[in-house]
Nucleic acid binder design. Sequence first.
DNA 1: TGTTGTTGTGAATCCCTTGC
DNA 2: GCAAGGGATTCACAACAACA
Length: 489
Amino acid sequence: MEAKKRGSAKGKRKGNSNVQQSRVGRDAFFNFMKKQRHEMGKEANAKLDRKEREEIANKWRKLNPQEKATYGSALDLSGGQVEGSSGQVNVSVNEKGFTSRCSPDRFHQTVEKLSNQKRLAINEIGFGKVASLCCTRLHRKLCKFLTERFNPDTSSIQLHGKVIGISAVEFGRVMGLQNTGEVVELEWLVEDEKVKELVKSFGGNGKRLLVRDLGEQLEKCENADEDFKVRFVMFALGTVLCPTSSPSVTGNYLTFLTIPGKIETKNWADHGFNFLCEGIRSFKAKKVLYVNGSLLFLQLLYFDSILHGGVYVDKSLDPIVSWDNKSVWKMIIWVRKQGGFDSPTVRVVSKHSPTNEVSRVNLERIVQEVAVSLAPIIQAEVKRSVEGLAITLGPIIQAEVQRSMLEFTDKVMSQVSSFNKDARQHLHPGHEDVNQTKDSPLKERDQGGESVVKKKGEEASKLKEKGVVDVNNTWMPLPDGQSFSEPEV
DNA sequence: TGTTGTTGTGAATCCCTTGC
DNA sequence: GCAAGGGATTCACAACAACA
C-alpha cells in the first residue's frame, strides 16, 4: 500500500493496542530504511546490496527508542519530513468506544419479506424462533454495561450485585436454539481451493461473504432449497448470532453448511455462546471498539433475568420471541426509575424456568401474531382457489356479468328517463327541456342522476364494444381512468 | 425535535505470503 | 532476514432511520 494513501487524515485508530505497538516497531524500521534509501538517492523500489543493508541496520541499532519511535508506520517522503506514529495514531483518544455489527433490525426486516415456504424451510433447520425475533433494537449503553459485567473466563455476569452463571444452555434458551449436536469448527480447510471456489459460488470474494449480499440473495432465491438454507444461516450468523466487526461473514462455515442436512446437526447455541465469550475476551484484552458476538443475547438475557413490577412479556415463550421493542423500552424506563442498570434495588432471578404466566396484554399480542402469521397463508390459499375457479368458470361468469350489466343499465336508464319525463310534465307542463332552466331544483338532482347514469350507460356501451373483460386482472383500470381499490383483508 | 441506533464506506493497520 | 504486495480486519465518520 502506498505511503501517500496512508497519510490521509481519515481512519485514525486507537493507539492502545498491544498488537499495534509491536507492529509500529517493525514498520518503524521499514520507514527508517525507506528514508535512508531516499537519502542515498535511490528509487523507492531499488534493491540494496548487502553492505548497504548492513550500514542501515547499524544506524538503526544506534538510535534510542524515542528516535526509533519517530519512524512510525506512516512515512511521507514527498515533503522531506518523516511523519511518525503520532501523525497517524491519535494517542489522545484513550477513551474506549463501543460498537457492534450485531443487527437484529436488518435480520428482522429481511426475514419479514420472505415467503411462507421459506419460513417453513427456516423452521426445518431449527432457526424458526430466531427468525421470529421481535426485539430489533439494541440499547448500546446497556450492551456496553453488560459487556463490561460479563466475565468470559468464568462464564458469568454480575447483575445488580448478583453473579449469574451463564452457558450455552442459556444461549440456547434465550435465542431459541438447540444446545445439542456437533461442535461447529472453523479452523480446518481454510486454505482449501475448493472452499474458495465454494465461497465464490455464493457470491463472495474467495474467503468471505458480505452480509448485505446475503440478505439480497435470500429475497431473490426462487426456492426454499438447500442453497437458501445455507445463505440464511450465513446471514443469521453475520447479523444476530455471530456478528463481527466486519460487514462480512467468513466462508469457512460453508465447508459444512453446504452438506445437505448438516445444518440441523450442529450445536449453534454452543457456537454462539463460545463466539460471544471469545468476542468479549478479545474486546477486553485488545480494547478494540467492536465487540464480536451476539449482543442481542446479552440484552435479552438481562431483561429475562430481572424481576420487575409488571408482566411485560409471556414468560412461557423463549425470550427471543417474547421480548419486542416496546416491552424492552418499558423495561429500560422501569430500570431507570429503579436507579439504573446497576441499581441494587432491582432483584435478579436465581434460576430460569419456563412458566405458564401469560398476561392479558400478551395474550392479545399472541392472538394478533397468530392472525398476522396465518393471514398470508389464508390469503394465498383463497387466491389459489379463486384463481382455479376463475379459470373454470371465467368465460361463463364474464358473459353473464356483461349481460346483467347491460340489462341493468338499460333498465335504469329507462326508469330515469321516464321519471324525468314525469317530473318535467309535473313541474313545468309544456316544457320539454328542464335542464335549460337556470337554478332549477331538478338540476341538482340531474347532476347526480341522469347525466351520471347516462355516462355509465355510455361506459357500458364502451365496455360492450371492448368485448370480454379480463377477470383474472383484478387491477384492470376502469374506463374513466380510475381503478378499483384494494380490498381490505 | 433531539437522541440513539444502524449501515455503508474509505482508509489505516495487521497478518500472511512470496521472491530474493 | 529483508522487502514488498495482497487481503483481512479494524476504525472513524457521515448519512440516514427509528424512537420517545
